[in-house]
Design a protein around this nucleic acid. Structure first.
Length: 211
DNA sequence: ATTAGGATCTTCT
DNA sequence: GAAGATCCTAATG
């Protein structure tokens, strides 16, 4: 693949565990009325759909997960914890759900815009260091769900890798999930300071009832 | 540096 | 009705 070229759709026509590590170093950009913000992807997680208990698609298609069952190379955005969005890139052919969650990136372009969108970031490294932070920095939300990341006409696009050969890829368990917690389907670029810290799943303390 | 709690609402059981 | 692919702030060692 040529550097800076749009990634061809067939790149995504494989399980997320194959696509995920290869997305490291690729560039995600989003053009809005305010300008463009682009990040170099430094951390991802693979979700394998109906064979993966941690995947939103585990129990089959629903209104929320229908795009995961759709065409590869499209964007699956979900809303979580009552306030955050996270982005995935859909993998495998239509009918099979599989997706790569984009967990962190390093801002390459549009830093000023990204900072304005993320006033709570203390340093530039934090701007897209976490799946919801990345969405905030790039202004990704409901409107981007189902859009095509492989089309030249799209506002949100992924372009090919410029990863150098001396950067090593690491692999380990996924962050913040309760089922299939041991599967090593999180991938990141070794030593990159934008990679989000690992956190094991903590069940939220239930509201005290009765009394 | 690490930890604990709160915010907030959609989704599926 | 409960949990959740998270983040932020404040408090503590």
């Amino acid at each position: 693949m040529q550097p800076d070229a749009l990634i061809p759709r067939k790149f995504f026509d494989r399980p997320a565990t194959e696509v995920g590590p290869e997305l490291l170093g690729c560039v995600l950009s989003h053009r809005t009325a305010d300008g463009v913000v682009a990040v170099r992807i430094t951390e991802v997680e693979a979700y394998l759909g109906q064979s993966d208990p941690a995947s939103h698609a585990y129990r089959g298609p629903t209104a929320r997960t229908e795009v995961m069952f759709g065409r590869p190379g499209h964007v699956y955005v979900y809303f979580t914890y009552g306030m955050h969005y996270c982005v995935n890139l859909v993998c495998q052919p239509e009918g099979t759900a599989s997706a790569v969650l984009l967990r962190a990136g390093r801002v390459l372009a549009g830093e000023e815009l990204a900072r304005a969108r993320r006033p709570s970031s203390r340093q530039d490294l934090d701007l897209a260091s976490g799946p919801a932070r990345l969405c905030q920095a790039l202004a990704i939300g409901r409107a981007q769900n189902g859009t095509d990341a492989c089309a030249g006409t799209s506002a949100l696009q992924v372009r090919s890798s410029q990863r150098s050969y001396d950067e090593k890829i690491c692999q380990g368990p996924r962050v913040g999930i309760s089922s299939a917690a041991e599967e090593p389907w999180r991938y990141w670029i070794e030593g990159d300071r934008t990679v989000s810290p690992y956190r094991a799943h903590v069940p939220r303390r239930r509201e005290a009832r009765g009394k």
